[in-house]
């Protein structure tokens, strides 16, 4: 009897642990909510929002003053509510470089180049987004009337996988296919952005349709 009880408890414990792991993994997927301006024009949404809190970090601010160009990448993706497969996506990059001798911040957004006297203004130029078009009209035509939301990621100084691999290969020297433990621990640190924030919008309905 005692043995049976012990066995049952152990089994229950196993399933509870498994359930906790699954729930924890789902919970981890949640993003914080942020209200985004969503304006529809020509069948596509235009997003307006601020991700300026990306630089609410002393290390990031120091990096912006380092004199070395720093990249900010913003990615916005559209999802149907209830799905986690994006159906439309948009990303752009902005670079901020502090000019050591002119004591000004140079901001590059595509081919545009602008100068700002203070850091906050330079950051706003990159991270206060107005009218960002996400996707093409055909991405939304089949979803008219559907409830969708937008997820946004802002990254400070991300590195691409290609460059990351390149950088590590040059310094590796080991033919071990698995790789050294320490290198891999470091790899975790270097293959991600210095800092990133994620948030999602309120649900919105795609214009048109009867639903």
């Amino acid at each position: 009897m005692t043995k049976h009880l012990f066995r049952s408890r152990r089994r229950a414990g196993f399933w509870l642990t498994l359930l906790a792991l699954v729930l924890a993994s789902v919970a981890h997927g949640q993003l914080s909510d942020r209200r985004l301006g969503v304006h529809w024009a020509r069948g596509v949404p235009r997003l307006s929002f601020s991700a300026a809190d990306l630089v609410d970090d002393a290390g990031v601010r120091r990096a912006l003053d380092s004199g070395v160009a720093k990249r900010i990448v913003l990615t916005a993706q559209a999802y149907r509510v209830g799905s986690n497969q994006p159906f439309a996506s948009r990303a752009f990059e902005c670079r901020i470089t502090y000019d050591l001798w002119q004591e000004a911040y140079e901001v590059e957004l595509g081919s545009r180049r602008e100068r700002f006297e203070d850091r906050a203004a330079a950051v706003r130029r990159c991270l206060a987004v107005r009218g960002l078009v996400v996707g093409r009209p055909e991405d939304y035509t089949s979803r008219q009337g559907d409830r969708i939301y937008f997820a946004v990621r802002a990254e400070f100084n991300p590195i691409s996988q290609r460059r990351c691999r390149q950088a590590l290969r040059g310094s590796g020297g080991s033919s071990d296919p698995i790789g050294a433990l320490v290198v891999n621990i470091v790899r975790r640190d270097i293959c991600r952005a210095d800092r990133s924030i994620d948030f999602r919008s309120q649900p919105v309905r795609v214009p048109g349709g009867d639903r």
């Binding site: 990448v73 509510v81 209830g82 986690n84 994006p86 939301y149 997820a151 991300p158 994620d198 999602r200």
Partner: peptide
């Protein structure tokens, strides 16, 4: 040029306005 991970969507409606 960016990290490979784009923002992650969440299937659940929980917590949404």
């Amino acid at each position: 040029g960016a990290n490979d991970d784009a923002p992650r969507g969440v299937a659940s409606d929980e917590g949404a306005p």
